[in-house]
Design a protein around this nucleic acid. Structure first.
Lengths: 140, 140
DNA sequence: TTGATAATTGCAAGTAGTTGCAGTTACAAT
DNA sequence: ATTGTAACTGCAACTACTTGCAATTATCAA
């Protein structure tokens, strides 16, 4: 409820226009309890601003991602979700059985990142990683 | 050039029909030097069998994936590629700059898999993982 | 305030893949 | 060889985006 203005002011500071469409997309992301989909954002915005186009929502999400203000997580099976970047926890474990999402501490991926750099000279971008598998409850 | 018949006989053995469309999709995957896209498979098949539908190609790929005969790799940016599963090397490093693909040894992911099991009771399915980042040549 | 103008939007068409359904067909059993 | 039938295919419509372009508009400077 605070960093709405952080995102807005970040946009403004970097010379991007504060259009009503953008403001509404940002507040939809902010006001969602957990992760929100593009379609959910659209249907919230369209109530107050009936002739928004879904492409504007996607373009705004693209911008916010590029500026590092919003994080996109691909949960697999066509489920893509968004959340404010400063809420932290960028990694997710996604259960293929029940869809449960477990937040993952970054430290677990540090050693992998190091190994890739050492053995392949590759700078891995692990910020938005979703690892699929089976959670405790769905193990046999 | 050998395992074409492995895939075909695996299908047959498990009670799946050997339709001309399936045979052609399999041979397209087999005869491609490196990884091949769904659209490339389709355009190869359509030459010899003009009224195949692209949905048949996708359904065949889905089946081959499910049976573990073919591996799908999502290179990001809408680029999805297929290759026979028994060619091994299931992990890939994908350069976000130049698109280069580096094959990754499974052993590097073992410690991560162990840590996820130990700390989150989560059985990670890392078979078809693509890690994005920057390769040697594109580092500044 | 008013204008100028480049950023942004809406629209319509396109891409990549999915799905329901009615018709076709590979394959087993006769 | 013929036939029954469930597996499979083609089709058309649909989902989840993406893109080019002409019209609109937030913002700045006068």
């Amino acid at each position: 409820m605070e960093y709405v203005h952080d995102i807005i002011s970040a946009l403004s500071k970097q010379g991007y226009r504060l259009t009503p469409q953008r403001l509404m997309v940002v507040s939809a992301i902010e006001n969602s309890e957990d992760h929100i989909s593009a379609e959910e954002i659209y249907s919230q915005v369209v109530v107050r601003y009936p002739n928004v186009n879904i492409s504007t929502v996607y373009r705004t999400l693209e911008l916010l991602k590029r500026l590092g203000l919003v994080t996109e997580t691909d949960l697999g099976g066509g489920r893509v979700r968004y959340h404010p970047a400063d809420k932290g926890h960028h990694h997710h474990l996604v259960c293929q059985e029940c869809g449960a999402m477990i937040d993952l501490d970054e430290s677990l991926l540090g050693p992998l990142q190091d190994a890739l750099l050492r053995e392949h000279n590759f700078i891995a971008d692990l910020r938005h990683l979703a690892i699929h598998g089976r959670c405790v409850d769905c193990r046999r």
